[in-house]
Design a protein around this nucleic acid. Structure first.
Lengths: 188, 188
DNA sequence: ACCTGAACACCGTTCAAGT
DNA sequence: ACCTGAACACCGTTCAAGT
């Protein structure tokens, strides 16, 4: 039965996380969707259009929607703690982010990645401002926290079994959230 | 004139950093080296063999040799500070690391990446032990520092112009090195 | 409106033949 | 020992033809 642009884009997002930008390949996707390449070229002008749609979908899912969910907590300390926990859990869910970073030499990937990065940094900076960090320091604090967030995810992907015991992992995440809190604030 | 395995592998490492695992492609490399695909298949059994050689070369350059250079400083605090500075500078030099992380679903990439990660963590853990961090804490400290190190690099690749002024960048790196120092130690 | 199927160019791989 | 050049399979792209 008839496929839509969305069907192709969803499948492409899965492929992006699995095999990087190169994984967004028309023929393999067509096979997986049980259709032909000709079908694809009805919905999209070319592969580049699918890539653009996939990057947009990734931005929507992993940035726009995540920020909305976190903001619903309405307590800056809890929001920070949730981000700290999400750094590790999120890395398990998918490595689309890793794929986009690796593809940063591609102008299309770079554009989306920069927008996502700035949106996330701005969100964090606002959080620190709400936590009464001096206006001049909130940006620095945000960058440090975001670097730690990114690194936690990357470390997990690089060495999934690195923390042998659940206890080690708890200590690691607790310490990470502590580092993300502004001085004088206990984690929520 | 006659090419060697090394010539191909060096070119492949450049391609890996530029275009990811998929960038290690026989025909484009042959074109760049001014030769034919047939030449490649004299030196290598197949593309997979070139990929393996490239990952080994990456490990050698970006882990083995880096650790040797850092260790030559012979002062744990200076070594940590050098690593902190290198986190940012290194990200500019190449994103082979990002390519390998993104390719972590590939068993060959994952194997090398895990070995590199454990080697680096063990090096950091020894550094913290030399800095008199309690034996039970050095591992945790190492993981936090390495996550921050990775994240700094990834943040730079994601948003190269994020720190508008050189002053902002200095503050960022100074704070990062401070976070990497064990409590009670001033940066070198 | 949506899809199939055949065509062609590009890259991985093989291999017989050249120097 | 090292390389060329032709061959073939796979995927991006096009397009005429089908429902």
């Amino acid at each position: 039965m008839a496929l839509s642009k969305i069907d192709w884009t969803e499948a492409a997002l899965v492929a992006l996380a699995r095999d990087g930008l190169a994984g967004i390949a028309v023929e393999p996707l067509a096979r997986r969707l049980g259709t032909t390449k000709g079908s694809f070229y009805w919905h999209f002008a070319h592969r580049a259009e699918l890539i653009a749609a996939t990057l947009e979908l990734w931005e929507q899912r992993d940035t726009t929607e995540v920020i909305n969910r976190i903001q619903a907590l309405c307590d800056p300390r809890e929001e920070l703690a949730a981000l700290g926990a999400g750094a590790y859990a999120g890395a398990a869910r998918g490595n689309a982010h890793a794929a986009v970073v690796a593809a940063a030499s591609d102008p299309r990937a770079r554009t989306v990645l920069e927008r996502v990065t700035r949106t996330r940094l701005a969100f964090l900076e606002r959080l620190y401002t709400e936590l009464c960090v001096a206006a001049g320091q909130a940006g620095l604090q945000a960058r440090l926290a975001y670097a730690l967030y990114l690194g936690i995810g990357e470390l997990r992907r690089a060495d999934p079994d690195g923390a042998r015991t659940g206890h080690e992992l708890d200590d690691f995440l607790t310490s990470a959230v502590e580092l993300m809190m502004p001085p004088g604030f206990a984690p929520a």
